[in-house]
Amino acid sequence: MTFPHRHLLGIEQLRPEEITTILDLAEEYVALNRGDKKHSDVLSGLTQINMFFENSTRTQASFELAGKRLGADVMNMAMQASSVKKGETLIDTALTLNAMHPDLLVVRHPHSGAVDLLAQKVNCAVLNAGDGRHEHPTQALLDALTIRRAKGRLHRLSIAICGDIAHSRVARSNIMLLGKMENRIRLIGPPTLMPSGIEEFGVEVFDNMDEGLKDVDVVMMLRLQKERMDGGFIPSEREYYHRYGLDAEKLSHAKPDAIVMHPGPMNRGVEIDSDIADDINRSVIQEQVEMGVAVRMAAMDLLARNLKGTV
C-alpha cells in the first residue's frame, strides 16, 4: 500500500490506485465505527488542529470525530473569531500554528488555493477541508465510498451531478475523482450555474433534468446557496424547484435502482423533494455522513504513516 503524499490538498494530485487505497482503508474504519469499541490509537500522541476560516458544523464535526477515534489530540480553532480579524495574514497564522508543532492540520478557507498556499509554509500534513470553489477532496472520497458500497463498483457507472456546479468545490472534486475512476459524468443545471469551459472537462452537459437523468446509476444533488436564489443566477426558488428540484417524476428517468446523494445540508423543497431525501430505498444521504468519518480516518491515518515514515 503506497500513498506518497505529504498532504491531501485535492483529488487532482491523486492517482486512481491511491484513491482505491484510501477507500479500502476506509472500509476497515467503517467496520470499526460500527463496532462496540470505536477506538484505535494510530494517531496516538499526534496533534490535529482544525482551522476553519469558513463556517462548517458537519465537516468540522466529522474531522473532529475521526481524529478522536484514532486517538489524536484534537483542537478546533474558530478562525473567524481569531487574529485573522485583526489583520494577521494567512501566512503569519500558519507560521504561528506551525510553531506549536501540530502533526495534522485540517483547513477550510473561503478562497480557492488558500489551503495550497498554507501547506507550503508548514511542516505538518495538511488536509483540505474545502477551499473556495476549488476542491473538497474528502467529500469526493466519501461520495466515492458510498457509491462503491451501494453499487459494488466505482467504474463504468453513469453519474449525474445536478445543480450549482459553478460555485461548488464538491462538484469539482467529484468530477475529477469519478473521471479518474472511468465513469460517465453528466452535469445538469441552468447555464447560469455552469462554470465556463465545462465542455472541456470530459463531461456531458444538460440543462434539462429529464434528459440528463436518463438511465443514470447515481444522482448527486448539490446544495443551492441561499444568496444565489433570488434573481441573480436563477429567477426564483420555486422556478428552480420546478425545473431542477429532484422529485419522483424526474427521478423516474434514472435507472430503477439509481441512488440519490446530497452532500448536505439540504434545502428541502428547493433542490430536493423531502419524500426522495427520506426514501430509504433510494437515498444514501445518511450513509454519506457515516462514510465521511471513515474516509477522514483513513486519510489521516495514511498521512500520519507518512509522517512517521511507516508506509
Binding site: 487532482e12 480557492s112 488555493g113 477551499d131 473556495g132 470553489r133 476549488h134 476542491e135 459553478a166 468545490r169 469539482r172 462554470p195 465556463s196 469551459g197 465545462i198 472541456e200 472537462f201
Partner: peptide
C-alpha cells in the same frame, strides 16, 4: 480569464 483553467482552479473569472 474565464475558461477551463479558471473553472478547474475555482477562481473568479472574467470573459
Amino acid at each position: 480569464t474565464s475558461g477551463k483553467f479558471a473553472s478547474l482552479r475555482g477562481l473568479p473569472a472574467v470573459t
